[in-house]
Design a protein around this nucleic acid. Structure first.
Lengths: 130, 130
DNA sequence: TAACTAAGAAATTCTTAGCCC
DNA sequence: GGGCTAAGAATTTCTTAGTTA
């Protein structure tokens, strides 16, 4: 998925032009565009910076270019889960309770919940007593 | 930057638990968390899916988690609260954790959370029972 | 000129096993 | 249990040089 995106973003400019601006050889850029190899994280970031898109877009995880608005490509299940959340009054209560609560405490509470569930299950997978 | 993010998202769960769910060895996950190696694009996507954040966040290109914001955000009736809920990846985690859990346990966990908050606050009962 | 690729050297990853707390 | 790491095999990347259109 990265390949086509890179090609699309380059438009009609030459590989050489982009490669030079980014500081890599043109063969290397060609490899990326043809998916013969994968850029490491540093270069991935550089490419995203250069083309001004989100990495999620580069990797085809979203169709939105903006980094801050990338959305995961999931299917119908997604809507279902969201609807479920919106229709759950108790979750709203949790949300109110959690909002503005220190990370430390949220984590501890989550841990406790998981502990309770493990107990319930009768099994003892993660006996994380605190 | 990936390392700290992965650790943060894992919370207090064990590497083994996550590694298994994602389908990799725990040494491998450890390497990622300690930045001894970089996951390839496929696994990067898998991690982002699993933790429900953007890849840009994983790689530290942004501080926004970029949750899986839904396409139905334009739901008629409401306010900021709902958008806030939908854009809170941690709340989704709570939702997953709470869904299908017996009322008894949910209540106990909620009480525990409130207890922790009261403790933290030093002195302020905030006794909002439902 | 522009893009692509073969080939091998160079670098990285990944697994296993063991170590430490 | 939970996490980290050494070592080397396995895999991937990257450069150069050459090919194709």
């Amino acid at each position: 998925m990265l390949g086509p995106r890179l090609k699309e973003l380059r438009g009609k400019r030459s590989q050489e032009e982009i490669a030079e601006k980014i500081g890599i050889s043109r063969a290397r850029l060609s490899h990326y565009e043809n998916e013969r190899s994968q850029p490491d994280h540093e270069l991935l970031t550089k490419l995203a910076d250069f083309y001004e898109v989100g990495i999620d877009y580069l990797l085809g995880r979203t169709d939105k270019k903006e980094p801050t608005e990338s959305k995961i490509i999931k299917h119908k299940d997604d809507d279902k889960e969201i609807e479920e959340m919106l229709n759950d009054p108790e979750l709203k209560m949790w949300h109110k309770e959690l909002k503005g609560t220190p990370e430390e405490i949220r984590e501890e509470a989550l841990n406790f919940l998981r502990y309770l569930k493990d107990q319930e299950r009768g099994r003892k997978p993660g006996d994380k007593q605190k």
